[in-house]
Amino acid sequence: MTTEDEALDWVIRLRDPGFEDWEAFGAWMAGDPARAEAYHALAIAEEDLGEMLPAETAPVVVPSIADAARLRHGRRTTRRLWLGGALAASVAALVGSNMLDHRGGDISVATAPGERRSVALADGSRMILNGNTVVRLDSADPRMATLDRGEVLFEIRHDEKNPFRVSVGGDQLLDVGTAFNVVHEHGVTAVQVSEGAVMYNPDSDAVRLDAGKSLRVAGDQAVVGSVVPGDVAAWRDGRLISDGQTMAEVAAHLSRYTGERVSATAEVANRPFRGVLSLGTREDIAALGPILGVAVHRTPKGWELAAR
């Protein structure tokens, strides 16, 4: 490799937010004054790329909305096509912007219904937000997140001395080396652990949830269950897996994921559902009736799951 090529590699490597190899970079430059010169010239030109690039990538096109729009324009998509789209879209959806909204000291990260977003944290941990979700980060404590609403997959870089904590609906989750999914909606909190373990309310209940365990907290009742680790956060690839969740929760999940407004009537709201849903378009929501065992009505406000 020429000095120029080597310098370009350093320019690229140094752009990584987590770059730490400063000693090696310094040693490389120290080897020959021409190297620092080549690096400087390239790095300056690289900095100036900003002038000819957009400030942020194009907004994420959420699969459900894109497909819904296409349907409105009279073009029908086959289910198979959509499934391909869903996989591509779940990748595209993660390719969102990482914009953080600073508000009053606390940092708030939010997604719109149907939007998904991946947020890298300073310590190398990552949060992947499903739609209609609000998470607050504490600028004074980088190892703390508060889930106000919605669903997040936490992929936490474990640090025994400084464990990551998630505050949700008044409960605490403490990571023990972890990837876990948390949903909080209508007063119900659901946790599913795919890797490592999570401690639920370490200071009071101290319930340990290992990989493959789930927890459902509604009111003052907390129930531990099981989950297939590979099914945790299946929403990331367009699957909604329900293991006895109520129709109201399924409706909330559908709304969050697709961006369509879906609700359950009082009559069916508490009915449990077990099964796998794969969906994204309006057409798909209408077609869910037989799978869910309910009637699906189009209403002026959105979709309604009702008794048959």
Binding site: P17, G18, L49, P54, E56, T57, A120
Partner: peptide, 10 residues
């Protein structure tokens, strides 16, 4: 774009 504009690690 992901690397340069969004600042995502390789």
């Amino acid at each position: 774009r992901r690397h340069r504009i969004d600042g995502v690690a390789q």
